[in-house]
């Protein structure tokens, strides 16, 4: 298990390096350049976990299959993947929060406000997306399952896009949506649904992963 954790830690660090560079670029870009591109990305910052972690997980089948190819138990491999997924989401959100704080410190008209009550909402949504991304890879290749898999990916994209738009105040969404807080009834229900989707995703992924044929 130690080697497995080391293996996933390497993958995690590579992912984190990308996130750190991205956040740093956005912070520096919005501080020192007048480019609207960086401003747009700075408003997307809260939803970073919704995109980066699921996108990485969506292309990691070889990474997740490799330990099994070399004789590691599926159960251990699966636990390793889950630890990595949760760590990726948590660290991405933490970095996003740091990034937003930095931008706010330096830019007077940055109006995104994500308090501690908003983080559980994004955490649940990001975990749900990450688990669905993993699930999409292990859905078997039958005709119906392939359609389901494509639908799943489409739903994920629409879902992530909706939440991203939802948390960008700049697009002028109605006031009742803000602030994003788990303590507001609408967001509370949303968080609960996402958490359930994440748990369901874990269970379904394990169901398929347990019997998946390992191909590299």
């Amino acid at each position: 298990m130690r080697n497995l954790l080391r293996y996933y830690a390497n993958n995690f660090l590579q992912y984190m390096a990308v996130v750190v560079v991205f956040v740093a670029l956005v912070i520096l870009g919005s501080r020192y350049t007048p480019l609207s591109l960086f401003e747009s990305y700075s408003y997307m910052m809260p939803s970073l976990g919704l995109w980066l972690a699921p996108l990485t997980m969506a292309g990691c089948r070889a990474t997740t299959s490799l330990p099994i190819y070399f004789g590691v138990r599926r159960r251990n491999t699966f636990i390793g993947i889950q630890i990595m997924a949760v760590a990726m989401v948590l660290c991405t959100l933490a970095l996003a929060a740091v990034g937003m704080a930095c931008i706010k410190m330096w830019t007077t008209d940055y109006s995104v406000d994500l308090g501690p009550e908003g983080l559980p909402v994004l955490l649940a949504a990001s975990l749900a997306m990450t688990e669905l991304a993993l699930l999409a890879q292990y859905v078997p290749n039958g005709g119906k399952q392939r359609t389901a898999s494509i639908m799943l990916v489409l739903i994920m994209i629409v879902f992530a896009a909706s939440i991203t738009l939802g948390v960008i105040k700049a697009v002028g969404f109605p006031i009742p949506l803000f602030p994003v807080s788990v303590l507001r009834p609408g967001w509370g229900v949303f968080t609960a649904v996402c958490a359930l989707a994440a748990v369901g995703g874990v269970a379904l992924t394990w169901h398929y992963y347990r019997k998946a044929v390992i191909r590299l």
Binding site: N3, L4, R6, Y7, G59, C60, R61, A62, T63, S65, L66, P67, Y69, F70, G71, V72, R215, L216
Partner: peptide, 26 residues
């Protein structure tokens, strides 16, 4: 050892990384 395929899944794996995984787990 099964025949490796040139699928996109292997796009992120270099020969070095593949053999490093072998060293780690075998």
């Amino acid at each position: 050892a099964r025949e490796l395929s040139a699928s996109s899944e292997l796009a992120t794996l270099s020969v070095k990384r593949f053999l490093q995984a072998g060293k780690m787990f075998c």
